[in-house]
Amino acid sequence: MGDRSQKIIYAVFVLAVILLGWGIDNAYYLQMLIFIGINTLLALSLNMLMGYAGQISLGHAAFYGIGAYVTAILTATYQVPPLLSLPAAVCMAMFVAWIVGIPTLRLSGYYLGMGTLGFGMIVHIVFREWSSVTGGASGFVGIPPLTAGPLTFDSERHYFFLVWTVVLLAIIMCRRIIDSRVGRALRAIHDGEKAAAAVGVDTKKLKLQVFVLSAGMAALAGFLYAHLIYFISPGTFGFVTSIRIVTMVVIGGMASIWGSLFGASLLTLLPEWLHAFSEFEMVVYGLILMTVMIFLPRGLTRGLLDIYERYRKNNDR
């Protein structure tokens, strides 16, 4: 994509955020949009790891949870201001990713999937069983709203703008990484680790770096989630969530930054729309996911672009 079309897309994105932020008064809709933003961050973080570098993680919800729990414990139990708990939460997740990544990233393919799956389960159990600190299975109550100096983000509208500003910054950051020398090297690792090593890419180091970055972004999403809901429980950060993040990436489009946005939007909104089907909700949900994968195997973004291009070619004829 050219520089100009990139700029247009960013402009459309910013405009849409502003219009939606000012135009919508319904608190429920605003909250839905906030969730889409948080899920976009999650999908984006996993897409860097899975879509670009080709490293599967089935335990991503663990980093999401670490971000949420670290800030919950610091702000509620120890009265640390959220501005300080944010770096703590992100650094904690990155540190854990670094420790876990060194042995785990030696694995690849299915084995890496299994390794990260096990890691996710362990973290989930820690959240549930370490009741004195995490509140255990009944959850953690009383997380304070987000404050930064004179600003308090306790209304939906304020939170909406906060989350989507973070999403925009994250998108810009990922875009810059992908377009750089490092981004090329990541895609090379995806294609063939041996070949990447043969041209001088330090594959071990780079995989670890992207894993740590990805964990940090997921923790940021967890931080935003905790201060939005004021309540967290282990169930939110379990295996199902990890799979949902993977689904967002695959449905939206692997190795596509805007695809993360589409995937997150669809997977957030779909369950809401499908309430009408009551007991058949999950059946329809599954059917839609299957249909997307069968007809648009490369994800929504790439798939829709392909359809558009085919349509244009037919019209030219």
Binding site: R181, R184, D191, G192, A195, V199
Partner: peptide, 24 residues
């Protein structure tokens, strides 16, 4: 520098990106 057996270029990346990777 090695030119590996079976070439092992990066098929989905552009020719230019492949070359730039060589200059990593």
């Amino acid at each position: 520098s090695l030119v590996p057996e079976g070439r092992l270029i990066f098929p989905p990346l552009s020719v230019l990106d492949n070359l730039k990777l060589g200059a990593y």
